[in-house]
Design a protein around this nucleic acid. Structure first.
Lengths: 201, 201
DNA sequence: GCGAAAAGTTACCAGCAGTAAGTAACGGGG
DNA sequence: CCCCGTTACTTACTGCTGGTAACTTTTCGC
């Protein structure tokens, strides 16, 4: 194809840009939802009603796209969990709601989640770390504030946050691709482990 | 280049195969160690002293290669942890050793780990699940046997196993790419979380 | 001996990330 | 009022990679 749009070459009339960064990211999410995690940048460009170089100008290469989508996804997760437990994480039932909200957000954005965590090539396994980092930061803060009295070492909160996020990511992936249990059930099991520890209480 | 080897076309003399599957996998690991996670199948073929179709015949496509390497890596991890704790996982210090052995194995096979968990494209995020599944199975068995008295539901062990493996993978990735603490330190922190739970004991 | 199967290599295709070069509208100085 | 540099696009390309078809040579069963 050489006709992604019906526009002619050259700067378009009217002072406005044709599409902005947000529109490109929206288009990318639609394409990924439709075509799966293997969606190409060309397809994204077509969906956005634009050509490839525009995509590069707006969001950068494939790694940057994954990073941007990771940021969005992380924001949604943080938002979902925040509204799900309205301020406190200090109880086991709160933790369960937290886990469940995560699972449901992943399920809702299944393909995008797989795209982001799929990492394209190179050292883009950082895509996953990127997603992790963004959802980790608030969690680490919460943990640090919460357990400030118990652990002096502030690094513990960071390690725990990454661990928990990794646990959630893996469980999500397993859940949406293999398992058929309910989100609530899985959330309760994971919450049990995370709250009571391996030996139980 | 069109001269990966100096061999002529046609079936080579001598009843033996030129290389077997294991040799190809060995070559793949060498290349990945040298070139990073973005190593190409062509490079693997050259390193193995063979042409691309042979690689395809021996191990299949890129996804299959990742899967095979995941299997090897999982085996190494299981072995490392097994020798590290010689039979029991029922104590917190044993758990710490388990986590530390995992971290060290990942560090030792850093690039291969990133290749496997990096997932190429498509739905090859299953590469990560594949690694998880293989290291998960023995862990799930252990957990199931261990806590058989407490939880009737056998599915709990599976969910926990995936969760723990995910936690380990994410912590490993974070540790080898960003952090500079010692493996022991991180292992103790994660083991603490996993054994005592979030609120502590 | 001889033809089918096995085990290679060469040569190719399709698709994708990323970029260089060309083209049209806008806008400020002479 | 016109002209030229800048901006914002498109077209058209390169380079590489995963994957495969077609060809070539040895081995082996009959």
């Amino acid at each position: 194809m050489s006709e992604p749009t019906s526009r002619r070459p050259g700067r378009p009339p009217g002072g406005q840009l044709v599409v902005d960064r947000e529109h490109v990211l929206d288009a990318a999410e639609r394409v990924i939802r439709r075509d799966g995690a293997g969606a190409s940048l060309e397809a994204v460009a077509v969906e956005a009603g634009v050509t490839k170089p525009i995509v590069y100008h707006r969001v950068g290469g494939r790694a940057d796209l994954a990073d941007a989508l990771a940021e969005r996804l992380a924001d949604r997760m943080v938002l979902a969990t925040r509204t799900a437990l309205a301020g406190e994480l200090l109880s086991q039932t709160g933790l369960t709601r937290f886990v469940e909200a995560n699972l449901q957000t992943v399920a809702e954005h299944r393909e995008v989640f797989l795209y982001v965590t799929g990492g394209s090539t190179e050292q883009t396994a950082l895509g996953r770390l990127s997603l992790a980092g963004r959802s980790t930061r608030p969690l680490a803060k919460t943990l640090a504030a919460w357990r400030s009295g118990i652990h002096q070492d502030p690094g513990v909160a960071e390690a725990w946050a990454f661990g928990i996020v990794g646990m959630l990511q893996m469980v999500s992936q397993w859940w949406i691709t293999q398992d058929d249990r309910s989100a609530t059930e899985v959330a309760e099991q994971i919450s049990d482990l995370l709250w009571n520890g391996l030996p139980g209480r």
